[in-house]
Design a protein around this nucleic acid. Structure first.
Lengths: 227, 227
DNA sequence: CCTCTTGTTGATCGAGCGATCAATATCTAG
DNA sequence: CTAGATATTGATCGCTCGATCAACAAGAGG
């Protein structure tokens, strides 16, 4: 143990590699803010990153770089990466749901509103969110925390679809039947979007496929949801 | 530079840490075999590993450990991990398709055969393969090689479903319509299976959902595919 | 103005990754 | 039985990851 070893820089640290940072980020120190505000900034950075690069891109260092802070600060605010990934997923998907609900609720006629909902879900304008969904299903197999978050959001989506269906359905329709149709729609939307994600272009339009079955189930006139 | 530094172990290297391997795998040397056989062994190891742990678990070291060889040997046989992942995906899914086709072709009556096909795809007996599919959709966003492999297998599956549908459909049905129904079925199967993967249990059975719409589309009597 | 709280940082640890390459061990042809 | 061919290995490089912690600095309260 006596040998030079350990403190190889003797006493003075004069030989510090001036001019080039030996490591770290090389970046002006982040302004001090309130924990609340900082947490919001980091969450926003994580969400933007996940939408652009996928949930797999959520690393301490990537989120930190995006937010312009040190990676240790991200670790300071997030109890673990598993939690951060699950929370980011929830934030993204919950925001998407709120947005879609708002978009749909602006339409008066129930059938037209239903059509708007389905069209929005399938027109490819939310491919980034679809990517997050697919990443989530994959990662959820290894993360029970994320799995629970995924189930929660799926239930919320199911409820939203049921609402839209109920308004356009004949009053005679039972809740049980609405649940069934909603499950059908949700499965189709998720399946079709996953397909689109790898550019698997079936010759037929996804909206037509779903509209056709929903029209029948809700006893709507043919073409009611495709125009 | 003169200081002790560099060769801190003087001349002789006698102080080798006997008794405990400083690194590597600690494993009897693998028997020498023909390249063909070894390649098959490694492919089998990769497939088993992917089915058990997902496509993300496919690393040089994990596959090597599974096959009982050095990781460098895996690298020697695979041009790159991206290729190995894509090839493993293709092997798994192609084998599944062949197996399902064989299973279905053992049934005479076309409607019963169609039912057998759908039931097999949805009874959860192939959750491991479903996991591979979901992993593939996720990874395919970052790997064009895998994306191409995914598209190929989706096309093959589409064709298989069309075949099963055609046999059970009225002769008057056009190819265009069969394509449409097949696309519907494939999207539903993939969506429902992804849902099942995170234990999202809709109250309704997936088979019932699909059977209902297929029966209508093929003009089969109600319940023809659920019994 | 000084002190104390606390938001922020840099460095570091241990681990795992794909890839590469000289060296080694084994089979086979002559 | 020898020599060449080649299947196999161990070590190593450069990199990224999550996590941890002492140290630093910027406001807040006295």
């Amino acid at each position: 143990m006596s040998t030079a070893g350990e403190g190889d820089g003797e006493g003075d640290g004069r030989s510090a590699p001036i001019g080039s940072a030996p490591s770290a980020d090389a970046r002006p120190r982040a302004a001090r803010t309130s924990p609340t505000e900082r947490a919001a900034q980091l969450a926003a950075a994580a969400e933007a990153l996940a939408l652009e690069e996928g949930l797999d891109a959520l690393t301490l260092r990537a989120v930190a770089a995006r937010a312009g802070v040190a990676s240790s600060l991200v670790a300071h605010y997030a109890p673990s990466m598993e939690r951060l990934v699950a929370d980011t997923f929830t934030a993204i998907v919950a925001a998407e749901l709120a947005e879609v609900r708002a978009h749909a609720s602006a339409v008066r006629d129930p059938a037209v509103r239903l059509r708007a909902l389905l069209a929005t879900l399938l027109d490819g304008s939310r491919d980034d969110v679809t990517g997050v969904w697919v990443d989530a299903w994959s990662i959820a197999r290894r993360s029970s925390v994320l799995a629970e978050a995924v189930r929660e959001q799926m239930i919320a989506w199911h409820a939203a679809i049921v609402d839209a269906l109920r308004a356009a359905a004949p009053a005679s329709m039972r809740e049980r039947e609405l649940d069934r149709v909603a499950a059908h729609v949700l499965a189709m939307v998720d399946g079709l979007n996953a397909h689109e994600l790898v550019d698997y272009g079936p010759t037929v339009s996804g909206l037509e496929l779903i509209a056709r079955v929903v029209e029948r189930e809700l006893s709507l006139p043919e073409g009611a949801l495709t125009r």
